[in-house]
Amino acid sequence: MNSKSNHHPSDIMLENFARRELPVGTSVIISAHVELCGRCRARVADFERREMREWHPEAATVDVHVPDLEGMIEGIISLPRQQPGRDKELATAAQDRFVNGARLPRALHQAAVNLQWSRLTDGIHQAKVAVDHETRCEFIHMAENAPSPAHTHYGREYTLVLQGSFHDDLGSYGVGDFLLRDASHEHQPVSDNGCLCFAVLDRPLRFTRGLPRLLNPINRLRFRGGLAR
């Protein structure tokens, strides 16, 4: 599945992703982008190959003491294997997950179970998913022309477009596009034709205009609550 993405994670993010060094939430959204984007898939593959040099026995620079591990074999082979018929995996793989008619990338399948949608403002709905303690992840649905509240961020907000498109003062974004917004951007996204996104925040949003500002202290509390959970 390839879409023509015009907005991608930075190489540093892709490398950290390949090294499995990002929080789960951030890894999930990058994985979803990578599934949609051949360019980034190739880059991640190159970073992983670089990682693999440590894996080659000849590349080991320090000779570490390796204890006797063979005792494990007995325990492992006494455990049942999964059926080679791979019925279960095939069944899961075939069971594509859809949200609002959009087929989800694999990394989002687990997160998208039992979504609870709640209304944020007119035409904007969100469904939070608990993926880790370090980020806040949610699906966001914007109805046609619904103005979302203008906001900046305390931290970084990553957004991946899964269906439809939206635009803000910096550009317009379609399926597969990956955006990063941080405290230096104030933006007010609008969708002309409706839009489903997955968003990951590593700090809470801060609304800058109008009534939604009242949510600021609450959001912050909620986020802290989320972290402490």
Binding site: R20, V24, S27, V28, S31, G38, R39, R41, A42, R43, V44, A45, D46, R49, R106, A107, H109, Q110, A111, A130, V131, D132, H133, E134
Partner: peptide, 24 residues
């Protein structure tokens, strides 16, 4: 003690060897 509701195998699916940049 982080929740493990998304498996690493879903984030980094095994067995799919993507082409390199030059290959694409």
């Amino acid at each position: 003690r982080q929740p493990v509701c998304v498996s690493a195998d879903d984030i980094w699916p095994p067995g799919e060897e993507a082409e390199s940049v030059s290959e694409t």
